[in-house]
C-alpha cells in the first residue's frame, strides 16, 4: 500500500514536480472561477433563484464572520470565503472516482496554513500598522510575548495537521475498506466523509477568522477600539 504521506509526481515543469493534487487544484480553480463567472454575469436588482442562492451564500458567510468575531465582514469576506469554498470543494472532490482530494496531501494543507499565517500578519499590519501588529504579541501582558510568538506558529501548524489528518484519514479508511469489500460498503463512510469535509472546511475558515480578528483587535490601540 502506498504511503498516504507521500505524493507521486506525475511529471515535471522545470524544477517543479507536478503531483495529482496540483492538477486537481487547478481543476477546482477552473470550476470555481468559471462557475462564479457564469453565475454572476447578470446580477439584477430583483433577484431570481440563482442570484438569491448566491446572495444567500454571501449573507451566510457575512453572518458567520460577524457572529464569531463581531468584526465587519467586508475586508475578510474574500479571503475567508474563498478559503472555505476551496477547502469544501477540495474535500468533496473525493466523490469523483479516481480523484484524491488535494487537501489529503501535505503540500496543499501546508500551503493553506502558511497562507493563514501570512494573512494574520497582513491583516494585523493593515489593522494597526506594524507597531500594532508587534504590540499584539504583548497581549494580555509583556510576559506572554514568547508564548504568543510560539502560539502563532503552533496554532497554524495545528490547523494544518487537523485538516490533513481528517481528510487523509477519510481517504485512507475508504481505501482500506474498498480494498476489503469493494461494492456499497464504503458508502456510509463516504457520507461521513462528506460531513467531515464540510465541518473541517467550516472550522478552518472560522479559526482563520478568529486568529485574524484576535490579532487585529489586540493590535488596535484602546482609544480606537472604542469607536
Amino acid at each position: 500500500m502506498n504511503s498516504p504521506l507521500d505524493a507521486v509526481a506525475l511529471f515535471q515543469i522545470g524544477p517543479v514536480p507536478i503531483t495529482q493534487a496540483i492538477l486537481t487544484t487547478w481543476g477546482i480553480m477552473a470550476v470555481l472561477l468559471l462557475g462564479a463567472f457564469a453565475l454572476t454575469r447578470r446580477l439584477t436588482l430583483t433577484p431570481g433563484r440563482r442570484q438569491a442562492a448566491l446572495e444567500l451564500i454571501v449573507t451566510t458567510m457575512d453572518t458567520q464572520i460577524r457572529e464569531t468575531t463581531g468584526a465587519e465582514p467586508a475586508p475578510y469576506r474574500g479571503f475567508i470565503g474563498t478559503l472555505f469554498l476551496f477547502i469544501l470543494v477540495a474535500n468533496w472532490s473525493s466523490l469523483i472516482p479516481g480523484l484524491d482530494p488535494p487537501t489529503a496531501q501535505l503540500e496543499t494543507d501546508a500551503a493553506l496554513a502558511v497562507l493563514v499565517f501570512l494573512s494574520v500578519i497582513w491583516f494585523g499590519v493593515q489593522g494597526g500598522g506594524v507597531a500594532g501588529y508587534l504590540r499584539s504579541f504583548a497581549s494580555p501582558n509583556v510576559v506572554m510575548i514568547p508564548l504568543n510568538m510560539l502560539e502563532s506558529v503552533t496554532r497554524v501548524f495545528s490547523m494544518f495537521v487537523r485538516l490533513f489528518g481528517n481528510v487523509m484519514s477519510g481517504v485512507f479508511v475508504i481505501g482500506i475498506v474498498a480494498s476489503l469489500a469493494g461494492l456499497l460498503v464504503p458508502i456510509p463512510l463516504m457520507a461521513l466523509d462528506l460531513l467531515t469535509g464540510l465541518v473541517q472546511a467550516y472550522i478552518f475558515a472560522v479559526l482563520a477568522m478568529v486568529f485574524i480578528s484576535a490579532t487585529v483587535e489586540d493590535g488596535t490601540p484602546k482609544s480606537q477600539k472604542e469607536t
Binding site: P15, V16, I22, L112
Partner: peptide, 13 residues
C-alpha cells in the same frame, strides 16, 4: 515535504 509543491499550491490558492 515538497516545498515546490507547497509554494505552487500557495500561489494557486
Amino acid at each position: 515535504l515538497d516545498f515546490w509543491g507547497l509554494g505552487l499550491q500557495a500561489v494557486n490558492v
